[in-house]
Design a protein around this nucleic acid. Structure first.
Lengths: 196, 196
DNA sequence: CGTCTATTTGAATGTACTCAAAAGCGGTGG
DNA sequence: CCACCGCTTTTGAGTACATTCAAATAGACG
């Protein structure tokens, strides 16, 4: 058991307690992978057989609309899970792209292994229930913000929610996440400067 | 066990198998309630101690933004669960309003009972994991739609997703859900008529 | 019926987008 | 070390989609 793997166990042990045995068993179901920046981890139409737990780097998921514009749905920095949840749970064709924004190390965990794990060690069902609940709340907040905030407020919200990412990401990707054009985000920031 | 209660068991038995005993035990944790239209089931600041399973009627959850505008986050017709998930799982003050759009019958299920049930009958953890996964996917789709579709497309999306609700709801609530003003929705529909 | 609320309509306005071009920035190779 | 290339960000003018506000009309309910 190497040092990297323990980061995922730390996250799990916040929610459930595992024996040595159980830890080992779980880790044996993970496949370590390294993705180069921009490697197409998942594309619409493919099946998301795995979820990825990010150990180092950062993944993003995004959709492309009728006019060819990208819309970023989620970022997954270290310690976060990423998948196309729709495809992962239904094993139907994915709707999203998943792509590293920098060189990224992750563990892949297959739906098949997950299902088996739930039967073998029911405690894991609890862990995934909890992180799914949390993720649900995050998406709901996003809906609330998209409906109730203007572009300026969504940008401020983003800065407080992802204080780290804001320095790492190209502005276009921030724009894509909050739902404005890169040009407009640029103008907005200029406007914010003036006012202080 | 009355006829009404079986609708909730039917939903559950799509995902897990329960003995007579277990069914009875679960039902004993539910508190039947009747809400008159517009009764304030939950308000921001309160704690969502319970989730509600709708047996008859329909609930809605919504937020109110800085300018006093309502934004509908979710509808829960018969057979759906409704709560302020953020408050329910964290037991912190809610951010949403929950309100019946018509007289509504429901079962209340407390977080406390849920936690205990998970320990007593772990199978239930699976049921709630699954419906949380599904709900997560629905929210994610909403985010994708909000970012990638224009008002017209969001309206069409709504009509195909909630073909039943469209006839029941006042148009303002449809407008509030898809994120436009009632005036604009009205104009949009007129525009759609013309084109055919 | 009459009142209250929901919907429609229109004109003026605003927020954010489009398109085009210029400026900035980082990496790479001569 | 600097020149050049590609990519990101900025800037500006014109435009579009959706909102605002006000008023008229239609519907629902007691």
């Amino acid at each position: 058991m190497n040092a990297e793997k323990s980061i995922i166990l730390k996250g799990i042990e916040k929610h459930i307690t595992l024996s040595e045995e159980e830890q080992k068993h779980f880790l044996s179901l993970l496949a370590p992978v390294k993705f180069k920046k921009k490697y197409p981890v998942l594309q619409p139409g493919e099946i998301a057989n795995e979820a990825a737990f990010v150990v180092e780097g950062c993944l993003r998921s995004y959709s492309i609309d009728d006019n060819g514009f990208e819309h970023i749905i989620q970022f997954a920095p270290e310690g976060w899970w990423m998948t196309d949840m729709y495809s992962f749970i239904s094993q139907r064709p994915a709707q999203l792209y998943i792509e590293p924004i920098v060189d990224t190390e992750a563990y892949l965990f297959s739906r098949k292994n997950q299902m088996k794990l739930f039967d073998d060690i029911p405690k894991f069902e609890r862990y995934f229930r909890i992180i799914t609940e949390n993720s649900l709340v995050a998406y709901r907040q996003r809906v609330v913000d998209n409906l109730g905030l203007n572009a300026q407020q969504r940008y401020e919200q983003f800065c407080t929610t992802y204080p780290t990412l804001i320095h790492i990401l190209p502005q276009q990707q921030v724009a894509s996440y909050i739902g404005v054009t890169p040009e407009f985000l640029s103008k907005m920031k200029k406007g914010m400067m003036r006012r202080r």
